[in-house]
Nucleic acid binder design. Structure first.
Lengths: 350, 350
DNA sequence: ATTAGCACTCATTCTTCCTGAGTGCTAAAG
DNA sequence: CTTTAGCACTCAGGAAGAATGAGTGCTAAT
């Protein structure tokens, strides 16, 4: 059954007022904010209906109403006015995005940080590889008798390198051959496959070479696995404490410890939708059951999708957050979503 | 004037009892915990003296005594029993340190994390370079027509690399010469010096070369500067909320926002002492005035000194924290303080 | 120097009472 | 059938007071 127009208007007023004040909303207050001129008694009847339908709840008998998750859901789906950003806001966002992010790792974490300061809620940030990352190419650079540098180009166009030292002497002349070996056998595959090929190799090459090769493969394997694991960054977690809903220290600590200490356990929403809003119990994560999350995603290169989630009480300001976040995400896609990452194409200041 | 032995014993009991319970300690409770058999009235006289001397304070007239910062200081300097770790504790520490840290960046942050879980207080972690980091050597690896990889070896034995792309074509054959140029002019110097040498070079080489060189130098300059900036990591910040002294949300938020969001502003103690305890107002940082910090340092390679700080209320368990932290720090020095970093010398599991 | 004894202080807790915002229901009016 | 005025009712939250009890400081005796 569809709600009447008036019921929707009333629900909207309740949600917005509660978002602003965190106080239950009473019938009189609603009358004042409502354009239609009706008495508070009428509103009370409507409120009773809305409560029966599950859109509102009462903290206790003699208090006003607050929205239920179902109420927020309706608000977000139908009632919320997607408000456009003011020029000064877009300006601020644009300014903050100038030249702050060098290198892929930084894009992800910085994006989260910027959003957090901009929406005034805590955020988390992560990224998914669409395809599995693997090694694109190996290079070995001689250093001294016992050490060399392994340079590993990954398919996501990052380049990682590390100094490796052995007990045995390393012959400069052998390195190119070993690199060739690596490039023919260990490119384009995942970590377990790397290991099994390494095993196969063990009796085809000399022990000395094998040692060298396995050190490099070990390193590369870690890189590939690390790329598969998704690192989650969080920002602004301390802002949680400013909301009255987290006055209860235990509630606060539960969520807080997720945000700052156990981020790896934050289950991320999977959908590819540009923006998604998860309200209270819609979150699968136990610690988020009383909170809401607004998630947006953006492109990084053409093989990754960045994710930014804004975390707050269910009473969070969905309209503003959604507007700002989606503007941000769109801009990030514009800046980093190209075929080839424009890594440090242009620079400014220092 | 020296305190009598009995006064010291009493102070010790007060401090330790308060550390355990967070409740003011009364004369009767002291009698019970004190070996000497005296009456509570005697204790009261002594307490009055200790208060007059500034070692104790009273929250209000009818409460027991709590230690003042001066009291904690005396306790830490003279009274505290440096307790040895039990075998099961050292075992746990040793186990947790097995093979968790690969690469220099990880040593620092992981060390902080491990200490935090082990002492049950929040920690911060950082590292100082004793000497300025600079570039030890450049390598350029051709990739395709317009891009190449810059590999930069730093004096702290880290190796960093990045894919650089230009608009102009990159000649494979030129790269070794350009690398040579870089290695003769841009090694062993700091970022500003790099820039000024770059300027000098501008009319000595062709525009094409200059473009290439400046891209690499720019990248290297950032690396060198980044090494100079000190990155601060924190762990376990949410544990703060479990202490009653941070029940006051505002206090909690102030410190919390330092720990999780503004870590770069945490001023770190400079001393090179292996361990240092800063009690309440001894901290210069405003946000830490009501808290205490136990800092220890350890060697990383032979050019860096890692720093781990344990943060807690002034009522923190100095004896336990100090014991565990120093054991940790000693082990870290043992593991990573060698001449040459044993980066991934041995491995286990995956 | 120590201690028993006693009057005093004051945070904390519990009760009681009051207030006022807000409700639900009924009965009358549109 | 919808709206509204009116009224009795509920209940969280705050204020005020009383009781509790842990702890003190001081005095006078040992």
């Amino acid at each position: 059954m569809e709600l009447t127009d008036r019921k929707k208007q009333i629900l909207k007023v309740v949600v917005e007022s509660y978002i602003n004040t965190a106080e239950p909303v009473g019938s009189k207050a609603i009358v004042e904010k409502l354009s239609a001129k009706v008495s508070s008694a009428t509103i009370r009847n409507e409120l009773a209906d809305l409560e029966e339908l599950g859109y509102l709840e009462k903290p206790h008998t003699s208090a006003g109403r607050i929205p239920s998750p179902k109420g927020y859901r309706l608000y977000v789906n139908e009632l919320m006015e997607k408000h456009a950003l003011s020029p000064s806001e877009t300006e601020k966002i644009n300014a903050s995005m100038q030249g702050k992010m060098a290198g892929l790792d930084q894009v992800i974490s910085k994006a989260g940080q910027m959003v957090s300061t901009f929406v005034d809620y805590p955020t988390f940030a992560a990224a998914n590889h669409k395809e599995k990352t693997s090694v694109k190419r190996f290079e070995l650079i001689p250093v001294d008798d016992v050490s060399f540098i392994a340079v590993v180009m990954l398919t996501d166009s990052r380049v990682k390198s590390q100094l490796l030292s052995l007990q045995l002497p390393v012959e400069k002349e052998e390195l190119p051959q070993i690199a060739h070996l690596l490039n023919t056998h260990f490119v384009g595959i995942d970590a377990p496959e790397m290991n099994s090929r390494l095993m196969n190799l063990s009796d085809q090459v000399s022990g000395h070479w094998f040692l060298l090769v396995s050190r490099v493969v070990e390193y590369a394997g870690e890189l590939v696995q690390e790329a598969g694991r998704q690192e989650i960054y969080t920002s602004g977690a301390s802002q949680l404490l400013k909301f009255p809903e987290y006055r209860d220290i235990d509630k606060a600590q539960e969520l807080m410890s997720f945000m700052v200490d156990n981020r790896e356990d934050l289950p991320l929403p999977q959908s590819d939708a540009p923006m998604q809003i998860l309200i209270g119990p819609e979150n699968v994560n136990e610690a988020l059951k009383d909170s809401s999350v607004v998630v947006a995603s953006y492109d990084i290169g053409d093989n990754m999708r960045g994710l930014i989630g804004v975390v707050g009480p269910t009473r969070m300001d969905y309209a503003t957050v959604a507007a700002r976040l989606s503007y941000f995400a769109e801009n990030l896609t514009r800046m980093f979503g190209k075929k080839q990452l424009p890594l440090k194409e242009e620079k400014e200041n220092e």
